[in-house]
Amino acid sequence: MTDSPDPMTATEEFADDAEYGWWLNTHPDGFVLAVRTRSAPLLHRATCPEVDRDVHPGRLRAKGARQVCADTKSALRAWLARELPGDGKLVARCPKCGP
């Protein structure tokens, strides 16, 4: 679902694995914010295997887990400020893909 057509604020979330996989494959320069209930949000590149639902199905589909996709980091920061205002500045970066 697209929140806004502006690339600086547009984000998408996909419940369907096929749509999510399509987005990852067609946006190799994009970013994914992995949000879990017990951890700080973690920023990844779209090409990072850590956000591949085929590689980590249990972790990425756990209750409360969300993967928010965007073409820009600023769009994900805007999403955090809007959706999780208390966590907006606590974004960690994946040490494996270094976004």
Rank of each mutant, 00 (worst) to 15 (best):
W23Y: 02
T11S: 06
T37P: 15
R59A: 15
C97L: 07
L80P: 12
A92T: 11
R82G: 06
G98M: 14
A10M: 06
V55W: 10
G21H: 04
S39M: 12
D6P: 01
D29N: 13
P57I: 08
V55D: 11
G88N: 07
L60N: 06
A65V: 05
P41T: 09
E19M: 08
E13L: 08
S4L: 04
E50R: 13
T9C: 02
V51G: 01
V68N: 02
P85Q: 03
P95F: 11
H44N: 07
G98P: 00
R77H: 11
W22M: 07
A62M: 12
P7W: 09
G21C: 07
P41S: 09
D29H: 10
D16S: 05
G58Y: 08
G30P: 01
G88D: 07
E13F: 07
D3W: 12
R38L: 14
E83N: 03
L43F: 10
T11Q: 01
C94V: 01
D52V: 08
E12I: 07
G86F: 06
D52F: 02
H27I: 03
R59Q: 15
W22V: 05
P49M: 14
N25A: 15
S39I: 00
P49S: 14
R45A: 04
M8P: 00
V55P: 08
E50F: 10
P99G: 09
T47A: 10
P99R: 09
P85A: 00
D6K: 03
K63R: 13
T9F: 00
L60A: 07
H56F: 15
S39W: 09
V68L: 01
E19L: 11
L80A: 13
L60H: 11
T26H: 13
P57H: 04
P85W: 06
P57A: 09
W23H: 04
A34R: 09
E12C: 04
V55N: 11
T11K: 00
T37Y: 14
R66Y: 12
D54V: 10
L90V: 10
R38H: 14
K89Q: 14
E19T: 06
C69R: 02
K89L: 13
P49V: 13
R66W: 13
T72F: 04
L60V: 03
R38D: 15
V55Q: 13
T11F: 06
P99H: 10
L76S: 00
S74H: 07
G21S: 12
P99K: 06
P41I: 04
R38G: 11
A40R: 12
E19G: 12
A70G: 01
T37I: 08
K63E: 15
V32L: 09
P85Y: 03
Q67H: 08
F31R: 03
A70D: 00
A65C: 12
P7R: 03
W23G: 02
K63V: 13
D52M: 11
D16A: 08
C69G: 02
E83I: 03
G64W: 11
R59G: 12
R59T: 12
L76W: 04
T47P: 00
G58E: 15
A18S: 11
E83K: 00
G98Y: 01
V35T: 05
R93K: 12
R36D: 13
S4F: 01
P49Q: 15
P57Q: 09
P85I: 05
R66P: 15
A46S: 14
E12G: 03
